[in-house]
Nucleic acid binder design. Structure first.
Lengths: 245, 245
DNA sequence: ACAATAGTGTCTCTAAGACAATATAAA
DNA sequence: TTTATATTGTCTTAGAGACACTATTGT
């Protein structure tokens, strides 16, 4: 440590948010249209700079979420995803960004009118495939976020966070299929879920579709960690032949 | 984004390193004695500030490792562990630190003489139990690092990184037992490892202990991801009764 | 009755866990 | 031979995957 007379390097700290949800049985990510340069007009993750030196990253993340979208989700649990610090990632200079991940139940279309008027949900496949271009290295961040969500579905009860307060087992299966991108056998899935103690609790019943037998309703149980875990079939496994869709 | 005339907040970026290794069948972490305030004289993780605004975090991490220890391990693979940004974590002001994790094979005792003369290996249990005090929030960082290593042993071939170029299956079991902190059945472990294709490759044989049948030697195979994973028995499972001392 | 979805039962097979038995060395 | 460790084999059981079958609704 030979730091005697040493100038602190000029580095900016930012946060970026990967908010995932399910719409029409497809995984979507929340994006905003950038209103300023660089990448003006391009799609990007919600996020921004730390406002002052005492602001914590988590607070900044929540603030940006409130500013750039009208999702009044104080309840949204943000989880640290990673640090993105490639020196060339931002043309304005050295910007180190900490990404956060959150899973949201089906939410209303973000209404315009707030700070970033143009927050929209976009299917993650369009982002991952490169069909939809994102600013900065945000496509990498989304990729990591989706992969993290996939992994967490195996070992945690995170899937219920995609659902509303009550849901059917089929709803839950939709979550797993959409996030993992592969079909699952409904009967084995049903058995597995129900035998995982504390994953879900009964909550009455209701007719789900206009046709067929009405499904029972459940709500999230107390269990956070799944042991044994849900098993994600290998990419080319006997079942889950091809990524659904 | 109402950032018109806006002062960049004064935030310092640092890196901290959690280097784990195995010594005498116990998990150890590399610590240095701090030579300057704050926490002068206390044990801490190797690490330090970014040197200039264009230095990447990974480069800074490698640089600090070389500066503060004489481990000439350019081969050491550093993996991002997390960001630690509690505003009160450093008395000098706002310091946001990015922690990195690496697994090292048994290395020589760090010899003094370099920048931080007092790098030593300390058992992780002494740190986790609080018996050994660390500077800043470094105990939290070590906790997270150990937990990460435990999880990675399940799904990746990381365990071989603790071993030298060749090793016996018992060596590998020592790694799992030390990191997971629980005894495993040697016979089931043996079978499981050998049936996991590409995990290890034969590499001759040698006498391991002064007594008993000599063990075959192996080297790390090409497989990085273990599928199906190694299963870490639950804390209070039928086997793994008590954490192996 | 028929279509459609929800939920149950059953079979097979893989693999984990317990543990007996065998192999190969040194003392 | 005894002792100690390495390696193989065998049995039992839990659980995943495949899939037939029953249940409950609307039309």
């Amino acid at each position: 440590m030979s730091d005697d007379r040493w100038e602190p390097p000029a580095i900016l700290l930012a946060v970026d948010l990967v908010i995932l949800t399910l719409r029409d049985s497809r995984l979507h990510v929340l994006l905003v249209e950038r209103g300023i340069e660089p990448y003006k007009g391009a799609q990007a993750l919600p996020g921004g700079f730390l406002q002052h030196s005492q602001e914590s990253l988590l607070v900044a993340a929540h603030r940006e979420l409130a500013e750039e979208t009208d999702l009044s989700v104080g309840t949204l649990r943000l989880e640290q995803l990673g640090v993105y610090d490639d020196p060339g990632r931002d043309p304005r200079g050295r910007v180190v960004s900490v990404a956060f991940l959150a899973i949201a139940p089906r939410l209303p279309e973000p209404t315009a009118g707030t700070d970033a008027a143009d927050a929209t949900w976009q299917p993650t496949d369009r982002v991952l495939s490169g069909e939809l271009d994102l600013a900065f290295d945000h496509r990498c961040i989304v990729t990591d976020g989706v992969e993290r969500a996939r992994a967490k579905l195996e070992h945690s009860a995170l899937a219920t966070a995609f659902c509303g307060p009550t849901f059917t087992i089929t709803d839950l299966q939709d979550v797993y299929e959409a996030v993992w991108g592969m079909p699952l056998d409904p009967r084995n899935f049903y058995r597995k879920i129900k035998k995982t103690d504390g994953f879900i609790l009964p909550a009455g019943s209701a007719r789900k579709a206009a046709t067929g037998r009405p499904a029972r309703l459940f709500r999230a149980g107390p269990r956070e960690v799944l042991y044994p875990p849900m098993i994600r079939p290998a990419e080319n496994s006997p079942n889950g032949k091809e990524p659904a869709q």
